[in-house]
């Protein structure tokens, strides 16, 4: 049989072996980061301790002392959570309106929203700094939350829109016949039905907020500075602090990488605006 013959021994053992090798190569830098984080700063730059060394937890225990880690982490959590919350609060009604009450220009509006995402941030760097400073919100949580919300709103609306569109219109109309008002439609029918989609949108939005590295760096100095700013500020340790820098970096990305594992599938839909399912 031709089909049976095609699955050669190489196919049975070679494919998984190769896949594992590729996966380990890709994961290696992260592994290296974690490994280095358990080395002392001195050991980290010695060739004899590449893989074998006496592990230490000091780098993690001293994160507060060395980098004031928790302050930056708190800022990251506060701004990311609130920005995600605001984006959902504004995005859910918008996506609902577009999915179930489309007007003639709905498609254009969606396209236009997407196009704001394509505006290169650098182009409006100075005006944003200027506005933030003249409004007195430079280096405040408010400014960071506002910008993070705006940056992610198009993706949030788009993702929610693609999820909402999967809900049969009949169900919303049945609700209308059964006597719910607009608020009831959202609360009683839409949110319970699209709960999974809303959760993954929130998760993805949170990840994007957490990793954002342009505005959070440019619009903050100390008060509202996030983890991106912290790492960016310590970008050139000249080999002196590889151990401690690795530890704080691992602590900055760890929670997000784990969160990311849970929403790989939604990531595809979110990042391709529903064009790949």
């Amino acid at each position: 049989m031709a089909i049976v013959a095609q699955t050669s021994k190489l196919g049975i053992y070679g494919r998984p072996a190769l896949a594992w090798i590729v996966a380990l190569v890709f994961f290696f830098p992260i592994f290296w980061l974690i490994l280095t984080s358990f080395k002392t700063d001195a050991d980290a730059v010695k060739p004899e301790f590449l893989f074998f060394f006496t592990p230490t937890l000091d780098n993690y225990l001293n994160m507060t002392e060395n980098y004031d880690y928790w302050r930056f982490a708190t800022n990251s959590v506060v701004t990311s959570v609130l920005a995600t919350g605001v984006a959902l609060f504004v995005g859910i009604p918008a996506a609902y309106a577009m999915a179930f009450n489309p007007a003639r220009h709905t498609k254009d509006i969606l396209m236009w929203m997407l196009s704001t995402k394509m505006l290169p941030a650098a182009a409006v760097l100075y005006p944003m700094t200027f506005l933030a400073k003249s409004l007195g919100i430079f280096d405040t949580h408010f400014a960071v939350i506002l910008v993070l919300t705006l940056v992610n709103l198009p993706i949030v609306v788009w993702m929610l829109f693609t999820y909402f569109k999967e809900i049969p219109k009949d169900i919303i109309e049945a609700g209308q016949m059964d006597g719910v008002n607009t608020w009831g439609e959202i609360k009683e029918i839409l949110i319970p039905l699209a709960w999974g989609g809303i959760a993954s949108t929130a998760l993805l939005c949170f990840i994007f907020c957490w990793n954002e590295a342009y505005w959070t760096v440019r619009l903050t100095t100390t008060e509202a500075a996030t983890l991106s700013k912290l790492i960016e500020g310590n970008r050139a340790p000249e080999g002196l602090f590889f151990g401690r820098l690795s530890a704080v970096s691992a602590a900055a990305v760890g929670p997000i990488v784990v969160l990311g594992w849970f929403c790989q599938k939604q990531l595809v839909q979110g990042l391709t605006f529903g064009a790949v399912k």
Binding site: I171, E173, A174, E188
Partner: peptide, 27 residues
């Protein structure tokens, strides 16, 4: 629609999938 005193049965049934039969009927 809800104030017209009419009830509608849809082609797709349009039941609320997150509610039990009882809650659907009670809605």
């Amino acid at each position: 629609p809800s104030k017209r005193g009419l009830a509608m049965v849809f082609q797709s049934y349009a039941l609320y999938p997150h509610m039990t039969v009882r809650k659907n009927i009670a809605f």
